Structure formats: C-alpha cells, structure tokens
Simulated scan of single mutants.
Amino acid sequence: NKSDWDSVTSPDLSSKGYLAPDLAAVAQQTVTPGDKDVTVNVYYDHDVVPVNPTNPQTPGTPINPDDPDSPKWPAGTDKNSLTTDVHQTIHYQYG
C-alpha cells in the first residue's frame, strides 16, 4: 500500500518581516509503510529596512504597521538622532 501526500505551498510571511522562501512549495510525496521520515526545510530571510537620515523611523511605533504587537522601533532611529551638525575649521599650510 502506498499513499500520496499533496504538495504544500510555503506560506507568505511578508507581513511578519520575511522575504519569499527559498522553496515556494514542497513537492508531492509518495509514501509507503516502512519509509523513513523525510524532513524538508524551507528557509526565509529577514526583510531588511535601512534606517538612515533619508529613511528615519519613529521610536516606539511598531516596525510592522500591520501588526501592532510587532517589535517597536528603538530609540535613536528618528531623524534628529540620525543627523548632526558638524562645525570644523580647517587650516591649510603650504610648504
């Protein structure tokens, strides 16, 4: 006796801060009594959001605005924390 297990589509986790998985679907498997276990790993990379003066964030707000329970942007990610005025005097000496 054998049985076919349907293929399984990898879930979309983009709303949780992940990129597309390395394996869009796990193929159909035919199994028979006595088959050994098979493990199929599906890997997701984290989505990366650059935080800089042209793309500041608001500390204390959810990183994922669609999920209010997601981690919050930490202190130091606002525009004022990411920019500073620098005043420097340069003295040139010619030889």
Rank of each mutant, 00 (worst) to 15 (best):
N55G: 03
D45M: 05
P68K: 14
T84D: 13
G76I: 02
K16T: 04
N55Y: 04
Q93K: 13
N52C: 01
Q93N: 08
G95F: 05
I63E: 12
V40Q: 08
P65K: 14
Y18A: 04
P68N: 11
D67Y: 07
D45P: 04
T30N: 09
V31T: 10
K79S: 14
D35V: 13
V26T: 03
G60L: 11
P53T: 03
N52M: 02
S15N: 12
W5R: 14
H87F: 08
N64R: 10
P11R: 11
D6W: 01
P21D: 01
K79D: 03
D35F: 09
P33F: 06
Q29P: 00
P59G: 09
G17T: 07
T58R: 06
P68H: 10
P59Y: 05
D45R: 08
L19D: 09
A24E: 07
T84M: 07
I90A: 10
S3R: 10
G95C: 01
D6C: 00
Y43N: 10
T39V: 14
A75D: 12
V31Y: 06
N80C: 06
V31M: 10
V40F: 09
L82H: 10
Q57R: 15
I63K: 15
P11E: 14
V40K: 11
P21N: 01
N1A: 12
Y92M: 04
S70T: 11
V8L: 03
N55C: 04
K16Q: 12
I63T: 09
P53W: 07
T39D: 14
S70A: 13
D22H: 02
Q29I: 00
D35Q: 14
P53G: 01
S7Y: 00
P56D: 07
A27R: 02
P65Q: 12
T9D: 14
S7A: 02
A27Y: 00
D78C: 03
A75R: 02
L23N: 01
V38D: 02
W5V: 11
V48N: 09
N55A: 14
D66S: 15
G17S: 10
Y18P: 05
L82R: 07
K79M: 04
Q28N: 04
L19A: 13
L23C: 00
S10K: 05
N1I: 06
P74I: 00
A20R: 08
G95K: 05
D45V: 01
P65C: 14
A75S: 14
T77S: 14
G76L: 02
P71V: 13
K16S: 12
Y94S: 06
A75C: 03
Q28A: 07
H91G: 02
V38H: 09
T58L: 10
L82W: 03
Y44I: 08
